[in-house]
Write a protein that binds this DNA or RNA. Structure first.
Lengths: 146, 146
DNA sequence: ATTTTCACTTGCAATTTGAAAGCACCCGGC
DNA sequence: GCCGGGTGCTTTCAAATTGCAAGTGAAAAT
């Protein structure tokens, strides 16, 4: 907390965003939560990118501290833990999908189908709503039991 | 380049984006270039956040390598250097402005005027076009002499 | 009771960062 | 030409962060 004395990483919108998720691993965690329906610690740990567990724990608690995630012990199996995206995290969807459209245009090795970018460009609100609904669907399966 | 052996940071759109600009300092450099009309090395170095020059040089060359910036020696004063955003960098504007809207909503210390978020939400294309025009305006003053 | 699953934590080497100093080139005066 | 300052990096080195591997403790499963 030395740096935040001199210049706080908020105020400027870009700086604030950088402070909250301007980091490789936060990107992939948010992707897993917002786009891939992952919720459990074990699911994050198993992601293709191979995050190590100390970093994973650190980023999860940071995101929790920044009010992006909430931590929950699974009531059906109390040795497991899941994380739910907050409204704040979900509100990132539009920007996130915008980034993805950008990637599909400029990464020549992109694995995303062209249909995604097309759909988003033609009707961004509908695309966002679709992902929102997916998030709700996944959450529903967890929130019921808690 | 060890990590890129195992999993290349492309393919997945989010991972690709994270690889190119998923870093605090890339965020603020892109902000300075896309939004604040900065072009010269000295201008970046003087930014409020106080980036140190080794990191600055590293990020500039990385962004150049990722085809986000092009480096130019100022023909009027050949000891100075400026960087121009590529089409690829400019294409990030929509996602970037989306992020800024998000920040203005969730950073309670935000310094951005509410009018910005409002304007973007009401007419995103117009807001983007306005920033595009600004970029062209700034570039025009440099490209003429080169 | 014992083993296994799970979510972390710890230890430690390696990479990255950051502050400061150094270096090389250009430019303007003299 | 030569000197002094401006400019864009590069180097140095300590400090912070990362990443791998092993460890821990609580809960389930056997």
């Amino acid at each position: 907390m030395k740096k935040s004395d001199k210049i706080s990483w908020s105020g400027c919108p870009v700086r604030y965003a950088a402070g909250v998720f301007g980091d490789k691993w936060c990107f992939v965690l948010l992707r897993d939560i917002l786009l891939h329906g992952k919720r459990y610690y074990g699911e994050f740990a198993a992601s293709e990118e191979g995050i190590s567990t100390n970093i994973l724990a650190d980023r999860l608690s940071r995101l929790e501290g920044d009010d992006m995630l909430t931590r929950h012990v699974d009531p059906n199996k109390r040795s497991k833990v899941f994380y739910l995206p907050t409204r704040k995290a979900r509100a990132l969807l539009p920007a996130f999908l915008g980034m993805m459209v950008w990637s599909t245009e400029f990464d020549d090795k992109t694995a995303a189908p062209a249909s995604f970018a097309k759909a988003f460009r033609e009707n961004p609100k509908a695309a966002i709503a679709w992902y929102e609904a997916e998030i709700d669907r996944v959450n529903a399966g967890l929130e019921l039991s808690s």
